[in-house]
């Protein structure tokens, strides 16, 4: 614990707050995941951990390491950007997969495929606009 004692209070306090906020939100998200009833409700819970949960911990890490190393350490921000870009892809794919499976079973709880079109049989990425809904394009 020696390296943490040298940190001044004005760095330690915001870092500690961010850490508690981030990990608390992640825990709440996982709690919701275990607790909520339907799959589509559960789909919302992990985004707590991947939005401000990750942001809090990453920002705390940037603050502390920048102080400890004596130079701006920004590599942790890359993890934040990475999570920000990948979570939509996984959650969107999972949502569509679940919709597809529920429709194939004839579940009444999900809306039918849009405007009397036959159910989408997993031709993701075949046409341009739907391809845009899968991986985010780099700038």
């Amino acid at each position: 614990m020696t390296h943490l004692d040298a940190v001044p209070l004005w760095v330690a306090l915001p870092a500690a707050l961010l850490l508690v906020l981030g990990s608390g939100l992640t825990l709440l998200g996982a709690f919701g995941l275990a607790r909520l009833q339907s799959f589509y409700d559960r789909l919302h819970a992990p985004t707590l951990g991947t939005s401000w949960g990750t942001a809090g911990i990453v920002l705390a890490s940037v603050l502390l390491f920048s102080w400890l190393e004596g130079r701006p350490v920004l590599q942790e921000l890359l993890i934040g950007v990475f999570v920000m870009l990948t979570t939509p892809v996984t959650l969107m794919l999972l949502g569509r997969a679940s919709l597809h499976r529920d429709r194939a079973e004839g579940s009444a709880a999900v809306p039918p495929a849009g405007n009397a079109r036959p159910a989408d049989r997993g031709t993701a990425g075949a046409d341009g606009a739907r391809g845009a809904a899968t991986p985010p394009a780099w700038p």
Binding site: D5, L9, A12, A16, L19, S23, L27, A30, L64
Partner: peptide
């Protein structure tokens, strides 16, 4: 002082994330 605050926050974060992993 700041060492204690940070140690507490880090401990809390580790326990919370461990619990979150367990729930997952």
């Amino acid at each position: 002082m700041s060492g204690t605050i940070l140690a507490l926050a880090l401990g809390f974060a580790q326990v919370a994330l461990g619990l979150a992993g367990g729930l997952a």
